[in-house]
């Protein structure tokens, strides 16, 4: 875990995050050729850089405000520091990719996403900075204490089938990643940082996990073959939850 690095030298430009939404309206037409201005020289470039930084402050402030409940220290001073640092880092990232802007969206929209990504990542990092992240290869069991009226024996049965499928068709690494992300709730960028990996690499692992689990649950009759879209608890389970848990259509038993 690294200590929080803070550069408060630009605090004078930072609005309180709570006010970020109401500042600096973007306006309808693009006010400038941002790419030319930022890539130019002299006063025009300086003005463009200053205005871009204000946009980044605005978007970072918006993001930190959304996630303020996750902050260990949500005081205005601490928020200001986070917003400014995220804006600075996002601006650096954006300028490094300026040549890739193709004008498919407004420049301001394109710029906002850099600040939102940076600020969200920073808030999640701070939220977990003093928390251990454990990679657990565990055998899961259905939650015994379901909440909500929609949960039923079928839900427990499906959870049991998923738990067995995790043991059967996932590698130990895939299980550890899936448990960390989806059972223990570790944010994907936090896990990536701790593992020296990337969000994209972990998401790819998760995609493979889901593909394998869905295929297994189709094979064992818990999901319909043609099911598309988000998985839902089935209306009816192929087996009684108290039976030995092998579905009629299964070609493989449980273990």
């Amino acid at each position: 875990m690294t200590a929080v690095r803070r550069d408060s030298s630009r605090d004078a430009e930072a609005p309180p995050a709570s006010q970020a939404d109401s500042r600096a309206p973007v306006g309808d037409p693009e006010p400038r050729d941002w790419v030319s201005a930022l890539g130019g020289t002299g006063p025009e470039q300086s003005t463009a850089l200053r205005e871009l930084h204000a946009l980044m402050i605005r978007a970072a402030g918006h993001q930190v405000w959304r996630m303020r409940a996750a902050l260990p220290d949500p005081s205005p001073g601490a928020v200001d520091v986070i917003v400014n640092q995220a804006a600075d880092e996002a601006m650096t990232a954006l300028l490094g990719k300026l040549h890739t802007f193709q004008g498919r969206s407004r420049f301001t929209t394109w710029a906002f996403k850099f600040a939102i990504l940076q600020a969200a990542t920073e808030v999640r990092r701070l939220q977990w900075q003093h928390r251990e992240v454990e990679l657990r290869d565990v055998e899961l069991r259905p939650s015994p204490a379901h909440e909500g009226p929609e949960l039923s024996a079928e839900g427990i049965d499906l959870a049991g089938a998923v738990a067995r499928a995790m043991s059967r068709v996932l590698t130990p690494y895939q299980r550890r990643i899936a448990v960390a992300l989806l059972v223990d709730g570790v944010p994907i960028d936090v896990l990536a940082e701790r593992l020296g990996s990337s969000r994209g690499a972990l998401y790819k692992t998760l995609h493979e996990v889901r593909t394998r689990l869905r295929a297994e649950l189709v094979a064992t009759g818990y999901l319909p073959v043609s099911q598309a879209g988000p998985a839902r608890l089935p209306q009816a389970s192929p087996i009684s939850p108290t039976d030995h848990e092998v579905s009629p259509t299964s070609s493989a038993g449980t273990r």
Partner: peptide, 12 residues
């Protein structure tokens, strides 16, 4: 070590 319904839904 429990699988809640949100976790099941997300895994699938």
């Amino acid at each position: 070590d429990v699988l809640t319904d949100p976790a099941v839904e997300s895994l699938l």
